[in-house]
């Protein structure tokens, strides 16, 4: 596969590199082809190369010590991945890169790019742009995990409870549930504090009404909307 220096201009980190630099990058890299489900590198390997995906699609996975896997991001052509070694000399890959389909990537020596970054402030600046974009993405995901996901989880639990044991209340469209906040906390793997904060917020919005060992769903649709991430 032939990659030209103008192809490399599509990479955010290389958009302002000179033609000479791009030629040098190409000289210090090799193209690696990986078949579907194959790996470019594994979490914990020495980060000797950084990659630019040229063709196909890859995903970055991180495994917990218990072996649970989390998908961190999907990589598309001309995106850089595994670049930690370009910044830190002794780095290991924090994640595994697996090809989702037959893919090719340009493997660039980390040491070579590290030297280039030290010489060319534009490249280091563009690398920072890429990194800050990633940080912001991760911050948004962290917020979703910490807040929105709990909201969905709790809404889903209430809907499930309504379907199983809810009674149509005398109030218009209301559904009566005989459960305490503690019950809901245990069912959703959250804390009583989180449940109380959430249910109070929903009560304030008029979605539900709470009492002792009792939750009344006043606006079923709004709970479904939260649970299913509907817009309206």
């Amino acid at each position: 596969m032939n990659i030209s220096s103008s192809d490399l201009k599509q990479v955010i980190v290389f958009q302002r590199a000179t033609d000479e630099e791009l030629q040098l990058i190409l000289k210090n890299s090799i193209v690696r082809m990986v078949e579907e489900n194959g790996f470019f590198f594994f979490q914990g390997d020495s980060a000797n190369y950084l990659y630019v995906l040229v063709r196909g699609r890859a995903k970055l996975l991180q495994a917990s010590p218990q072996g649970q896997q989390v998908s961190l991001r999907i990589i598309h052509p001309w995106q850089m991945f595994g670049a930690l070694g370009a910044v830190r000399q002794e780095a290991t890959y924090p994640a595994t890169a697996q090809a989702l389909e037959e893919s090719s990537a340009l493997a660039i020596e980390s040491g070579f790019l590290r030297a280039l970054v030290e010489k060319n402030p534009r490249i280091s600046f563009d690398l920072m742009t890429l990194m800050t974009t990633y940080i912001q993405e991760m911050q948004a995901r962290y917020r979703e995990l910490a807040t929105e996901r709990v909201e969905q989880r709790v809404a889903n639990a209430l809907i499930r409870l309504a379907g199983q044991s809810g009674l149509k209340s005398s109030k218009e469209a209301g559904i009566e549930l005989s459960f305490s906040r503690q019950d809901v906390a245990e069912m959703t793997g959250t804390t009583l504090y989180t449940i109380s904060r959430l249910l109070s917020e929903w009560e304030r919005q008029g979605y539900i009404e709470t009492g002792r060992e009792r939750i009344t769903i006043l606006k079923p649709h709004d709970l479904v909307r939260i649970a299913e991430n509907l817009e309206k």
Binding site: R160, G163, K168, E172, A173, I175, H221, L223, V224
Partner: peptide, 20 residues
């Protein structure tokens, strides 16, 4: 979003009109 909704047996058509 009524089709497939898990709370469809609690909502009357009147509720649907009001909600939407």
């Amino acid at each position: 979003s009524c089709v497939g909704c898990r709370l469809a047996h609690f909502c009357t058509l009147h509720d649907v009109i009001k909600t939407y």
